[in-house]
Design a protein around this nucleic acid. Structure first.
Lengths: 112, 112
DNA sequence: TGCGATGTACGATAGCCATCGAACAGCCTG
DNA sequence: CAGGCTGTTCGATGGCTATCGTACATCGCA
């Protein structure tokens, strides 16, 4: 009935409203994930595919990190062909946890 | 030469200014530690000894958690006899990481 | 001086999670 | 359709850390 592609089955989004502080902190406690968020913050919405990030981990691990960030209400993803484009949920997440995301985005140290 | 008691040797404080976001998030990612902070926030400064907290862990583990919080610039401790009294470094920590501590203190769920 | 209370230090253990390679699936282009 | 690209899933592994019991140190008090 639905015309939605099979690929989207792995795209469960979590509304930031439903995210607990524990999950948010767990998600943000990883330096690789924070670097993903910072990169995303510097680009327009839905212009970064997962594979375009320069990360010090394998693509399997990177995929895991994107899933964690999505589950924590930190990003929205849409499929475009074989690519998965990302958007930082800046406003919604900041409404749920005021000030938390800015701390991450303003972090001056890139290495982690 | 110094008249400082031996006991204070285990009291290295970290100025919140010198704390990195990574350490802060690691410290706050533990539910036991967050419950310590919330308890502390509800009492006057330097009125809670470490042993007075009702925690679901052994005293050895509790001591470890207090050390982590102190190292993250989240609390100040002073010795009073055989007791160690605590103060939440609310203002200093909030100056370093604006908004972060309030998120923890306003956390409505006690279980973690 | 001896005892109980408070808290730290140490060594061991267990569970969690970041990580990886390999296999798999969808998508696009030649 | 074949091959390459993008991304997920799976099982295994290693490291980190929360946890504990025990031993130890310090302090106040009888």
């Amino acid at each position: 009935m639905t015309t939605r592609p099979r690929r989207a089955d792995s795209l469960r989004h979590t509304d930031p409203v439903d995210v607990r502080l524990q999950e948010a902190l767990d998600a943000l406690a990883d330096p690789v994930r924070r670097s993903i968020l910072r990169t995303l913050a510097g680009e327009p919405d839905f212009t970064c595919a997962c594979g375009t990030f320069d990360l010090p981990v394998s693509k399997a691990t990177a995929s895991h990190h994107f899933a964690v960030l999505r589950a924590a209400g930190l990003l929205e993803q849409i499929d475009q062909g074989s690519r998965r484009l990302n958007r930082l949920r800046r406003v919604e997440f900041d409404a749920r946890f005021p000030g938390l995301l800015p701390l991450v985005l303003d972090e001056d140290e890139p290495t982690g």
